[in-house]
């Protein structure tokens, strides 16, 4: 197969960038999208040009490192997959493919298609955990958890932190990411103790990072490679409001 690629090239964080056009040929339909870029990069290296930098690691859709806004869509045209799981058979021979980095103030471009997603880490650091030290915890079967609850928590926990939700959201909102973690821990008995302080701290950090607000377009859910549900966003809204209006900490001005 043959493609025309228009790829965002930007030498560094503080430099301006532009879309550059590359032609590529002899691409197999069984190749993954990133393997296609590997081939492009081999060609560029041969020509002595700087290869296109993009984030990737596990190449099996679980590490969340790969990104790319492909032909106007986060992780490309297919549903429920990451870019590394996208195969060239999803394109037609001769297609022009536009590749851009995730665009958000909170995800500044580092180089070419590589962005800095450390804002997500800082949100988790703000409260996305259960405060238990190693050791001294009860037996795992001491607290039964309904199967459905566990499985719903699992569905939320399956988030890979890739940032596609932010990338696709017209407001660059991180609500789906944040709500997935808030939901997971709010549903499980282990998360109850810090339930309200957690949601408040994580939301505050989310705002501080410069993400937009949610206008419920649900584009995040549609583009999420792990199909995290926007029900989590509603749940986080409820958790937040409950915390504000019912939790004693909130009224005492503690959190």
């Amino acid at each position: 197969m043959k493609f025309t690629l228009k790829i965002w090239r930007q030498a560094g964080a503080n430099q301006s960038g532009e879309l550059k056009t590359y032609e590529i040929d002899n691409i197999s339909s069984d190749m993954s999208f990133l393997e296609m870029l590997d081939v492009l990069n081999e060609n560029l290296v041969q020509k002595g040009e700087d290869p296109v930098h993009f984030d990737h690691d596990c190449r099996e859709g679980i590490c969340g490192m790969c990104s790319l806004y492909i032909n106007g869509r986060a992780h490309g045209p297919q549903r429920a997959i990451t870019t590394c799981q996208l195969h060239m058979r999803s394109f037609n021979d001769g297609d022009t493919i536009v590749i851009e980095p995730w665009r958000a103030k909170a995800f500044p471009v580092v180089k070419d298609l590589v962005v800095d997603r450390s804002a997500f880490d800082r949100i988790i650091q703000a409260g996305g955990f259960v405060s238990v030290d190693t050791g001294g915890v009860p037996d795992a079967n001491l607290i039964p958890i309904p199967k459905d609850t566990a499985s719903e928590a699992m569905d939320a926990a399956t988030c890979i932190g890739c940032g596609a939700c932010v990338a696709t959201c017209k407001n660059a909102s991180a609500m789906l990411f944040v709500s997935a973690k808030v939901s997971q821990l709010a549903m499980l008995p282990q998360g109850q103790v810090e339930r309200y302080s957690r949601v408040e701290k994580m939301v505050a950090q989310m705002d501080e990072e410069g993400f937009g607000s949610c206008t419920n377009t649900y584009a995040c859910e549609a583009e999420c490679p792990k199909e995290i549900s926007v029900t989590n966003i509603a749940r986080m809204n409820a958790e937040y409001l409950k915390s504000k209006f019912t939790s004693s900490d909130s009224f005492a001005g503690k959190s």
Partner: peptide, 18 residues
């Protein structure tokens, strides 16, 4: 929300997801 994305996509197909 506008400030949250200072650089916009040059090619975007939002109709696919919302």
């Amino acid at each position: 929300n506008t400030q949250a994305r200072p650089v916009r996509y040059s090619y975007n197909k939002p109709a696919q997801s919302s």
